[in-house]
Amino acid sequence: MAALPPCGSEAPQPLAMKGRDAAMREVQTAPLPPMNAPRPLTLHVNHAEHTLCVAPDTPLLYILRNDLACNGPKYGCGLGQCGACTVLVDGTAARSCVLPVKAVVGHAVTTLEGLGTSAQPDPVQQAFIDEQAAQCGYCLNGMIMTAKALLADNPDPSEAEIREALRFNLCRCGTHVEIVRAVQRAAVLQREHAQGAQP
């Protein structure tokens, strides 16, 4: 098997730099890489751009945690079942452990780190702190990110709607009651926050 083309230093020049025919030739005769060989991908994570040399089929979660040091999303089941790895892609919840990183090229990824800081937490984070919704806390990334997606769709959800939205986020400690209360509080805080921001 041929050696993998090295990544990074020999990344192709932008095509616009050359004449059109030359560019065409360049594309035609360039070595054909293995289907999943590492190649430079540009990701938008938490409002910043990162160009990384990665295998396109790698799960997004690995890139976030290992390459970008975003440790908010957790590795839970690795099968998209528990929701601990949830991030937002263009504001929609996504299970980053089963999503190939190439799928989010050109989309905006938001992790827990992108919501707020310790000094200035997001209203949803603040609500979870206020309600002391964590026991072991492993599921909380997923609960918070999913709640964030829910409140973007539905700023004033009923308790039933909250339970429905979070039904596929698993919590093994059993702080479900506190979590539901936290999301209810988050809805209130977020509305207040929005009103406060308006004038």
């Binding site: 929609t92 999503l99 997606a149």
Partner: peptide, 18 residues
């Protein structure tokens, strides 16, 4: 319910990317 529903039951849970 645990393995499939999150991505295949459009009437349950949150909308997911994809």
């Amino acid at each position: 319910q645990s393995a499939c529903a999150v991505c295949h039951q459009s009437d349950q849970g949150m909308r997911q990317f994809g």
